[in-house]
Write a protein that binds this DNA or RNA. Structure first.
Lengths: 200, 200
DNA sequence: GAATAAAGATTGATTAATCAATCAGTTGTA
DNA sequence: TACAACTGATTGATTAATCAATCTTTATTC
């Protein structure tokens, strides 16, 4: 007997709620201090139900790290690396990235945990690292275009772009308790400096 | 019967060995996955002996985070904020900081864990945060002096310096598996850009 | 310098608590 | 009625901390 569409929707919602609460708890208390019982309580389902949706705790963690990545990577890659005015596009991109990093607090702190213990969370790290490479490559093209048009100084693009992504993740670590987007946006000029803009 | 100086030295060495191994294990596997049994085995002492030197596991973790801070903070603060040539001093300082961050891998990854979960490791975080403020204040003086002498652009020093420390910690997160000091030194120009040097 | 005693360091088996995962029984739905 | 989801008590494994017994070191005595 196949379950109804209504039932499917309900179950999807339940799964989503469990995963949401898991992300919050994992990011704040880490893997071991986040017990299945706590996740169940926070998401309003029974202990056993968590295992209906996620076969093991490891799997729950894996999904907590992986599932939000798709949406966030789309947001982070949403700029035109071949824009006619690379410097202008770069500034828009940086502003957008800073906004995203200021908003997505909990999930990014989970990401920091995974990267910080890449031997422990090897599988998740590999996927995050792969996105990091894609991310940097796309920004590098924009930076190279800016250099060709003499809008940016002739700095090594690999080190420039890696510095930029390091600044983003470093800000997320340092400004853990700072939720104010306006404050975050004041870091845009500093971030732009890394790319060596030609004007003052 | 008081113990001899020789005995004292031996015990200090034993304590140091336990703490060293604890730092390595905590930084790589986190608090919960680092068991007292593992620390004991890694440092070549019995399970019970760990408790002779550290009353609880919490205390061992606390000391693992706190004790290296004194030495490292000395290294990081070893620059002259009132140097006659601020830009030159700044470049020397940045080079030194990058070197330190490239060398002190394991401990700094432990620091990232504490900052990343500041609600969980509240006490340790407070002390690290205090150092962070001292660190930034001293760099700010140097940057202001550089701006006064027109060696640096008139950027907001608070956001500039916070960006700089974020870049350092972000590099440590991103370059986890990169031990080569020469590679790290190639980030010096990017880091310098943040301060807005006037020459090219 | 050998014998003895006392202090304190060392050891690992034991204890008590925690938690992931299971599973048998129950509830809800088509 | 039949099937699937739901539930939470139970199980087995893990681990921080304790503690009684053992070993090592040092001071004292003859």
């Amino acid at each position: 007997m196949p379950i109804s569409e209504d039932q499917m929707t309900k179950m999807q919602a339940k799964r989503k709620k469990i995963l949401e609460q898991a992300i919050l708890l994992f990011s704040e208390h880490g893997y071991n201090d986040t017990t299945i019982a706590k996740v169940a309580k926070a998401s309003g389902v029974s202990f056993g139900s968590v295992f209906t949706y996620f076969p093991t705790k490891d799997d729950l963690f894996h999904q907590a790290v992986m599932e939000p990545l798709e949406e966030i990577s789309k947001l982070l890659l949403d700029f035109d690396e071949n824009a006619s005015n690379p410097l202008e596009e770069l500034e828009e991109m940086v502003t957008m990235h800073i906004k995203i990093f200021s908003e997505v607090n909990k999930y990014l702190r989970l990401v920091v945990q995974v990267i910080g213990q890449y031997t422990r969370f090897e599988n998740q790290f590999k996927e995050l690292d792969q996105f990091h490479n894609t991310f940097r490559e796309k920004i590098q093209i924009l930076v190279k275009n800016g250099q060709t048009k003499n809008q940016l100084k002739q700095l090594d693009t690999h080190f420039t772009v890696t510095s930029y992504t390091s600044l983003l993740i470093g800000l997320r670590v340092n400004l853990a308790d700072e939720p104010d987007e306006e404050y975050w946006l004041k870091f845009v000029p500093s971030a732009m400096q890394i790319f060596g803009p030609m004007d003052t």
